[in-house]
Design a protein around this nucleic acid. Structure first.
Lengths: 230, 230
DNA sequence: TTATTTAATTATCGTTCGATAAATAACCTC
DNA sequence: GAGGTTATTTATCGAACGATAATTAAATAA
């Protein structure tokens, strides 16, 4: 109870007992990124470094010992979510010709939705897109290359249409609408918090059924048109 | 060149000649909202009121004569975009049974895309959704009520399936995936600036063709299942 | 135990933000 | 043309932001 009059800013009676536990830098780094993912998903990238520090039970300048700037922290968040959570077996499963095409596509979208339908993934993805960084362009390019082109070829094959040539842009775009339709289910559920009376698995099954039933004739028409030039 | 020493903050040599033209409040109000739409679409809602004032050639406190707070300005922006740009004839066109269902749906999505595929509409919509206001929930409810349920009923009818009962959630969800797939085309084009080698009209035609071709059997299965309870 | 290292803190700077109060000047009316 | 109304400006406040420098104390080594 003595002195302690040095600073009026001490906010009398609300000193939350600084921790001063000394952790290994590597663990701290991970801890910071993990909580940053959580915070940015909630508030967006304009979330303050002070808020993040408070949630970590740490002072704000300490963050700058681990990340030179806030943008570096954000870059680490991107890496964590969009690089580390990508599964190479998605592509492999889609190419596994021992299973029927419908089964492969449904299984993929169920696993994919299970991975990305979280507030961290979807909200930060949209925040990043609106911010104008190239994360989304690059991610979409990966989706097209690793998922949609394989799906397109596998579907073509399963309909007995020529499997040699690479997919045309028009074909790929067709599969983008399926991808977008399913992704937007997640946006409505997680971002808009729209009431979703139909569960994910049912939605995926119905969407894939509708798509696979209808895509045959359209693919055939596209193939015929490219076969017979003017 | 005399005096002028009153304030050091005059930023010597960069006084951009204040305008001091006296406009009618009503026009100013519209002018402010219009430019705010532009600015928020570019930067997001964290765009500063000073930046907005500068683009209007006006001082920042003047904004507060027309809008009590920044949130009121944002509310006016929502009204302008999501209420004023809604077209009641969308619903009417979809219900016009004198035209084939495919034609109605394609025509709707072409007009709808022409209306909402702009940076103002899509970017501000996503900003709003991430911000957590209820704009998106309400808008999505309107889409479901005014667009998707009519489409569902019209499609059912055109397939000769019972048209009496209201659409089931599962049926409506099916049409949401078409809506979402087309909407996400706009997100990729306008927000992610992904290269889009297939033009809108082609994408819409192919997506609707695929969907309408495939949706018949799925709708039939859903109808049968609800007819024959356990 | 003492010395060294460095994780973590305190203190603070310069900017920018939303918002308010007071002063000024353009337009309208008589 | 004088006087009043109010659109617009100048000046400024307090809070929050990202970032830096200097200080303190926990862990490790001698």
């Amino acid at each position: 109870m003595a002195g302690r009059s040095s600073s009026l800013a001490a906010a009398e009676g609300k000193a939350p007992a600084p921790r001063r536990t000394r952790n290994k830098p590597e663990e701290r780094h991970k801890e910071f990124v993990r909580k940053a993912v959580e915070l940015f998903a909630e508030i967006g990238f304009e979330a303050g470094t002070r808020e993040l520090a408070q949630r970590l039970g740490v002072t704000q300048p300490l963050l700058y010992r681990y990340f030179p700037s806030k943008d570096d922290l954000i870059a680490a968040v991107y890496q964590e979510i969009y690089v580390n959570r990508w599964k190479p077996q998605w592509r492999e499963g889609l190419l596994d010709e021992s299973r029927p095409i419908r089964e492969r596509i449904v299984a993929f979208y169920e696993d994919y939705a299970g991975t990305i339908f979280t507030p961290e993934w979807i909200r930060i993805y949209l925040f990043a897109g609106l911010r104008g960084v190239d994360i989304n362009r690059r991610y979409a390019a990966t989706v097209e290359e690793q998922i949609l082109r394989p799906i397109t070829l596998a579907t073509r094959t399963s309909f007995g249409l020529g499997g040699g040539e690479p997919p045309t842009p028009e074909e790929v775009e067709l599969f983008w609408t399926l991808q977008g339709g399913i992704f937007y289910y997640g946006v409505r559920e997680i971002v808009y918090r729209f009431p979703m009376p139909v569960d994910r698995a049912t939605m995926i099954r119905n969407a894939v059924d509708t798509f696979l039933t209808g895509v045959g004739p359209v693919l055939k028409r596209l193939a015929e048109r490219s076969d017979a030039p003017a």
